Amino acid sequence: MMIICKQLAQTQVMQIPTGGMDLSVLRYNPHKPKVVVVMGATGTGKSRLSVDLATSFSAEIINADKIQVYEGLDIATNKITEEECSGVPHHLLGIVDPESDFTAGNFVSKASLAMKSIVGRGKLPIIAGGSNSFIEALVDDENYDFRSRYDVCFLWVDVAMHVLNQFVSDRVDRMVASGMVEEVRNMYNPNGDYSKGIRRAIGVPEFHSYFRAQYSSSADEKTRSLLLERAIKETKINTSKLAQRQLAKILRLKNVKGWKVHRIDATKVFKKTGKEADEAWAELVAGPASMIIDEFLYNFDHPRAFADMADRSGRDVREVQMAATTY
């Protein structure tokens, strides 16, 4: 159920004082144990933020992506790599047979066991993933079991859609360059069922016509080239559509169900590259998120911390606070 990433953390995100409090006291605290949920559309950096927080707050991560739970297609499903894990244990990642179905009920059962185990070791569970239907099934279960057992803090990493669309388009190109087509080809089955298992992953059904043409003696090179180009384009379009659906679900959870969601705007980060992007991530995403979680765990007062961040960055305090807006 758990993947232990052996790579040790190379860098630490912005550290927020916690007064030396050991998370293991949560086991003996009369109050409910804490759980953090990191949400967002595909490509917004949920995995990165979860690891940043986990290295700061002694946490373990539970994957809530309904496709990444399956074994295989690491490139096509954009699974976090061992290096990116930075030594943080990950649960429910690549553990399900790719031919089987993994339902929301299955997720609730396994995630509940993982949370109990993590809390029992004095660690903070961080649930991260884009499958909001899985998260909703866990948090708002019929018997209110989750709410009765845990206090929860919701983080939403948001990126303006026009900026995110360009990013996911470029990401698909990088995935293709990294061998995604060959990876998906190894799973090709002319009679495959694209309505179940890992074959539901975006980037699998889109390449069906291309692979079929490759194995057909009647398809010439030009036809195959056009089909490949179309498959890549469709993968980009469908990824953008997925991001829009995910955003709509988050807004429904906030507006209709009344979830208290802390929105962190990462748009400016995605407009930068290289070192500047990393610095913006620490300032606009990892830093504010750490403050929110620190307050959630320890009731730490952050006005002075926001002021210090503003002084270091030369920005207005209100602008820094806007990076961690509660919706």
Results as ranks from 00 to 15, higher is better:
Glu229His: 04
Glu206Met: 01
Ala177Leu: 08
Glu183Phe: 02
Val168Arg: 12
Leu242Gly: 05
Ala243Tyr: 04
Ser217Pro: 00
Phe167Gln: 11
Val269Ile: 07
Ile250Pro: 02
Tyr194Asp: 03
Leu242Lys: 08
Val181Pro: 06
Glu276Asn: 03
Met161Ile: 07
Arg200Phe: 06
Leu247Trp: 10
Tyr215Ile: 13
Arg171Leu: 11
Thr223Ser: 09
Arg185Ile: 05
Met187Arg: 14
Tyr188Gln: 02
Thr273Met: 06
Val261Lys: 03
Asp193Lys: 10
Leu228Trp: 07
Ser218Met: 12
Gly258His: 02
Lys222Pro: 00
Asp173Ser: 12
Tyr215Ala: 14
Met180Trp: 05
Val163His: 02
Leu251His: 13
Lys196Glu: 04
Arg171Met: 08
Val256Gln: 08
Arg174Pro: 01
Glu276Gly: 01
Thr273Lys: 15
Asp220Ala: 05
Asn189Pro: 06
Glu276Cys: 00
Arg200Asn: 09
Ala248Trp: 01
Gly197Phe: 14
Ser225His: 12
Val172Asn: 08
Asp158Glu: 03
Lys271Arg: 15
Val269Asn: 03
Asn191Gly: 05
Leu253Asp: 09
Asn165Cys: 07
Phe211Tyr: 13
Arg199Cys: 02
Asn186Ile: 00
Glu182Met: 06
Thr273Arg: 08
Ala213Asn: 05
Val269Phe: 08
Ser225Met: 07
Ala248Gln: 10
Arg212Gln: 14
Ile250Trp: 04
His262Val: 15
Thr267Gly: 02
Val184Arg: 04
Ala266Phe: 03
Ser195Asn: 14
Arg224His: 11
Arg174Gly: 12
Ala248Met: 06
Thr267Val: 02
Thr235Met: 15
Gly197Arg: 03
Gly192Trp: 04
Gln244Val: 12
Gly197Asp: 09
Leu253Lys: 07
Ile198Asp: 03
Lys257Tyr: 14
Asp173Gln: 09
Leu253Cys: 15
Thr223Leu: 11
Ser217Phe: 04
Ile264Leu: 15
Lys236Phe: 02
Ala213Thr: 03
Val204Phe: 15
Lys257Phe: 10
Ala231Thr: 01
Arg263Ile: 06
Val261Leu: 06
Ile198Gln: 10
Phe211Ser: 12
Asn186Ser: 08
Ala231Pro: 07
Lys260Val: 01
Val168Tyr: 10
Leu227Lys: 07
Thr239Pro: 00
Ala201Tyr: 06
Ile202Gln: 05
Gly192Val: 09
Phe207Trp: 07
Val176Ala: 10
Thr273Ala: 11
Met161Asn: 03
Thr223Tyr: 00
Ala219Ser: 15
Pro190Asp: 01
Met175His: 03
Val269His: 07
Arg212Asp: 06
Ser218Gly: 06
Lys268Glu: 14
Ala231Asn: 07
Gly203Met: 15
Val256Tyr: 00
Val204Cys: 13
Ser217Arg: 07
Val269Arg: 05
Ile250Ser: 05
His208Ser: 08
Ala231Glu: 08
Asp158Lys: 06
Val181Ala: 12
Arg200Ala: 14
Leu242Glu: 11
His162Val: 10
Leu242Phe: 09
Val184Thr: 12
Asn191Val: 05
Ile232Asp: 01
Asn189Thr: 13
Asp278Ile: 02
Gly197Leu: 04
Arg263Phe: 09
Gly179Arg: 11
Phe167Tyr: 11
Gly203Gln: 14
Arg185Glu: 15
Asp265Trp: 06
His208Cys: 11
Thr267Phe: 01
Phe167Met: 04
Asn238Ala: 00
Lys260His: 00
Lys241Cys: 10
Val163Gly: 04
Ala243Trp: 08
Ser178Val: 03
Ala201Leu: 03
Thr235Glu: 09
